[in-house]
Design a protein around this nucleic acid. Sequence first.
DNA 1: CCTTGAACTGAACACCCGTTCAGTTAATCA
DNA 2: TGATTAACTGAACGGGTGTTCAGTTCAAGG
Lengths: 210, 210
Amino acid sequence: MVRKTGSHADITGPRIRAAAQSLFARHGFAAVSMRQIAAAVGVQAGALYFYTPDKQSLLFDLMHDHMQTLISAWDAADPGPELPPLVRLQAFVRFHIHHSLERADAVFLSYMELRNLTPDNFARIEALRRTYEDRLESILRAGLEGGTMHIPDAKLATLALIAMLTGITTWFRPDGRLSCDRVADIYWEMARKTVAGSLGADFGGSDSVA
Amino acid sequence: MVRKTGSHADITGPRIRAAAQSLFARHGFAAVSMRQIAAAVGVQAGALYFYTPDKQSLLFDLMHDHMQTLISAWDAADPGPELPPLVRLQAFVRFHIHHSLERADAVFLSYMELRNLTPDNFARIEALRRTYEDRLESILRAGLEGGTMHIPDAKLATLALIAMLTGITTWFRPDGRLSCDRVADIYWEMARKTVAGSLGADFGGSDSVA
DNA sequence: CCTTGAACTGAACACCCGTTCAGTTAATCA
DNA sequence: TGATTAACTGAACGGGTGTTCAGTTCAAGG
């Protein structure tokens, strides 16, 4: 009696969130009005407040869900700490690229609209972002300690790799020159070399630059 | 008689642009009102229109100036095409990091507010961005042809490197753990390895991952 | 068939938006 | 000193903002 299966509400809520995500990603949180979101769903603006307390919560929920999904999806995809760090790193690179490209709008939102969150909400999203970064950083530290990786700074390498991988979402087009799989192959090769042993002597003179 | 030296206008224009840049970077173009910009300058909103035709032009001018400054500053810093590609790449990495960190607001604007440009203005900024990317890409292609670099895809390596370098602006703090110079050193080492020869056999088994 | 109540409308609330413009101010020049 | 004019004010313009809420609708439950 409290809940009817197949009710309209079960589908309208997700539809609002989908419309908001798409519009926020395309035009930015501040540039999209509740009336525009409502129109995209085919409803009056007032009806949105049956599903969300306010506009800010709509943004926060989208970002929060994305970060939680990201983290738990990686924890499910992680081949495990007993495997060699380079194996785990390869899994991470492939996972991050595929997961991000399949959720371009959510990824865009989650690092473009941080400044539109209230301080409290910002802190919660930041914590999740750091949690995800720590997953990668611990892989790099394991590789460092095991001697299979050579990185000048684990924290900076983490940030550099994530920036490099996430940047793909800003230019990748499914109908472009390269498929998602091919892009993942190429980026894995670059990432592998970034953390590889520092056998830089194979091109003489590069260090003797003024 | 047309221009008075030391007039108020000579300083108010730049002050408006500085305030707009700071506010746009912190809160986003759409979230900042002309009245807020005016208040930051200590003037009424209407006075802004003595210096800019509209809000959109204010944004475009900031982004356009930043891109032009970036490109011409690199062209001045480029050690020249007669030098080894790895030398030029090192110069590029150091230049990009230092230039970006000294202009955090402008960098932030120029890749966060692209979607708030009118289609015409967007196309003009995009062209400048591509011009800058081409500077790096041609270095990588030269290294590829000369055999001193080994990259799976010059275009993707360009995008990966720029994303990696520009990402620094999102976390770098002048009073943080590492100085700008130290960060540049670390990133150069990572960038160098990314484009280095593919002597990946120094850690056996990494390629035999399922 | 009638009641219930979830889903939704449409109008209203107070306020903010970018932009314009008739005036005011104050400094310069002849 | 008086005319000129660039710089700026302050009010107004039409319209959009997030949010609320008294009503309407309509399918399901008893």
